[in-house]
Computed example of a mutant assay.
Amino acid sequence: MTAISLDHVSYTYSSGTEAIKDFSLEIEEGSTVALLGSNGAGKSTLMDMMLSWKKAQGITIFGKDICDYGRKELGRTLALVPQSENYNFSFTVLDYTLFGRAPYLSELGSPGFEDIEIAFNALETVGLQDFAKRSITALSGGEHQLLLLARSIAQQSRILLLDEPTSALDPANRRKVMAILWNLHEKGKTLVFSTHDANLALELATHVAMLRKGSLLTFGQKERVATSELLTTLYDTPLTVYSIEGKTFVY
């Protein structure tokens, strides 16, 4: 089943800058798709459109026009893991993770036992269960990124969108996040992540969509599109794809 469909989608900012140009893409349920491109290629704008933060015609989610989704229904369908987030209050780690349960609560409702259990399980998934009562202001940068991931896991959406999920992580936390995301993929979650790191795309994704100046350069299974020629065109710089012990690397 098609999870996300973009049919000749375009987006122009109020300044007149055309960020996305006649963009068409179909993302199948259960796949992990990398939106790969350099800074300014349109990756973040495209994800904002998928979240309905930026309005555009031609986007359907599981066959339903995105304009026909209510806020809570869309929140149960898509969740976002941003690169970072500013804290205005000193919540505990558990309370912050519980924000992921908002699409399931009534307007004035409070999280119940089941919501707390789901949030705590999400913290266990990312390894932060021992920090449940700690203030979020006491977390390190890597722990903060894991918390954002835990909140989105607690949201239990069918699709998980991630904006540059490992860009600010040290090697240990990068590997940890990669393992968590791969586990989610194996459980059938649809993942879409933006990155400018070709090696990350080749390591984690099943499919790669290459974005260049707001347009789709190519899309397909990573084994088909990960060529030296296409990557050199994508980044306007010489890149070579190597295969070492069954793994593909870009240099």
Rank of each mutant, 00 (worst) to 15 (best):
L80G: 09
G112M: 12
K54M: 09
G214T: 05
T137S: 13
S135P: 06
I244A: 08
L146I: 05
T195G: 01
R158Q: 13
G70L: 11
E143V: 07
T32C: 15
R224P: 00
G58C: 11
G109H: 03
P82F: 05
N183K: 15
K187C: 06
F113L: 13
N86C: 02
E164Y: 07
H144I: 03
P171D: 04
H207M: 01
L74D: 09
L46I: 07
W53C: 12
A138G: 00
V33D: 03
I4N: 06
Y11V: 11
L128F: 08
M178I: 15
T12L: 04
T240F: 10
Q155I: 03
G220Y: 12
A122S: 14
H8C: 08
F193I: 09
L98H: 04
K189C: 06
F99P: 02
D68S: 15
E107T: 12
S167D: 02
V126K: 08
R151L: 00
Q221R: 14
E29C: 04
H8F: 01
G58E: 09
E143G: 10
K213P: 00
Y11N: 02
F89L: 12
Y251V: 14
Y251G: 12
E18T: 13
S243R: 12
V93E: 09
R76E: 11
I153W: 02
D130Y: 12
F113I: 13
